[in-house]
Simulated scan of single mutants.
Amino acid sequence: MPHLEQFAPRRDTPDTSGTPGTADTADTAGTAVDRVVARMRALDAALPPRDGVAVFNRVYLAVTEEVDRHIDTGRFADARAAITLDVRFAERYLAAVDAATSDRRPPACWRPLFQFRRHPGVRPLQFALAGINAHIGHDLALAVVDACRSLGCEPADLEDEFDRVGDLLVALEERIREELMPGPDLLQIADPLTHLVGSWSLERARDATWSAARALWALRRLPDVAEEFTGRLDAAVGFAGRMLLTPLPD
């Protein structure tokens, strides 16, 4: 894994109920993002490099730092919305880490990564994509709802921020595949890893996530239905993650 280290509208009264973490949308630009970046850097320093959670954490740290740079340089039209979405998103991953660390059950979407994080038959690319699958497929949809509650807006008001963050993730995923996919092209064709990771697409996952976020927002006044929808989404994303972490021969 020699190269992965380099990945080193309307606003109503805010409602922060039901959201994880402590992000405050009144934070000055960058403060809340700095807080989650510090957490990820601490994890990077504490975890063994080959640990599956460490592999994903480095990838996600790179994304979060890139979002922070885009905010600082004014590339988001609504910096407050971008910060809120970014932090709510990160908090869900960090909450899953905290749950696993304290022997509580993380969401189903994250369990495969924590269960297989030290498996010798799982390759670094699989760990990276399984983490991205969990975070995009489940956490991002809930983070959009969290951010809408905090900002007093509709999902449509966050679509530009959602798309820009998604574009950064797609670009980084392409880079990850290039860095971590083994061997010459001819060998890649026969490598089981090629077939396994080729069955998952971040762009398709991102499109499905936007639909899920809009559905969850529409269901917010039907809590029982929203809870069932969220549970099924969590389970489905977890199943995909388990498939991505299938141990492979050397």
Score class of each variant (00 low, 15 high):
M1A: 11
M1S: 12
P2N: 12
P2L: 12
L4V: 03
L4E: 03
P14W: 07
P14T: 07
G18H: 01
P20I: 05
A26C: 03
T28N: 02
A29H: 00
G30L: 08
T31M: 07
T31P: 00
A38F: 05
A45T: 12
A45R: 15
A46I: 01
R50N: 07
R50D: 15
R50A: 15
D51F: 09
D51K: 04
Y60C: 07
D68C: 03
R69K: 07
I71H: 00
D72F: 03
F76M: 05
A82W: 00
T84P: 00
D86W: 00
Y93I: 01
L94E: 10
A95I: 06
V97C: 11
D98Q: 09
A99N: 02
A100K: 00
A100L: 02
T101A: 15
D103A: 06
R104M: 03
R105P: 01
P107L: 08
P107Y: 06
A108L: 13
P112A: 10
F114N: 06
F116H: 11
F116G: 05
R118G: 05
V122M: 07
Q126S: 12
A128N: 02
L129V: 11
G131Y: 02
G131H: 04
N133L: 10
A134Y: 01
A134D: 06
A134M: 06
I136C: 01
I136K: 00
G137S: 10
A141M: 10
A141H: 10
A143N: 06
V145W: 04
D146T: 03
R149N: 13
E154F: 03
A156G: 08
D157F: 06
L158T: 12
E161A: 14
G166K: 02
L168E: 09
V170M: 11
V170D: 14
A171S: 14
L172I: 01
R175F: 05
R177V: 09
R177Q: 07
R177S: 02
E179N: 03
P182G: 07
G183S: 05
D185Q: 10
D185P: 00
Q188N: 06
A190S: 09
A190V: 09
T194F: 13
H195D: 15
G198P: 02
W200G: 06
E203Y: 08
E203G: 06
E203N: 12
R204D: 12
A205Y: 02
A205S: 15
R206C: 08
D207R: 15
R214M: 09
L216A: 13
W217Q: 12
A218E: 14
R220P: 01
R220V: 09
V225H: 00
V225C: 01
A226P: 01
G231E: 10
R232C: 04
L233D: 04
D234F: 10
V237N: 05
G241R: 00
P247D: 08
D250N: 11
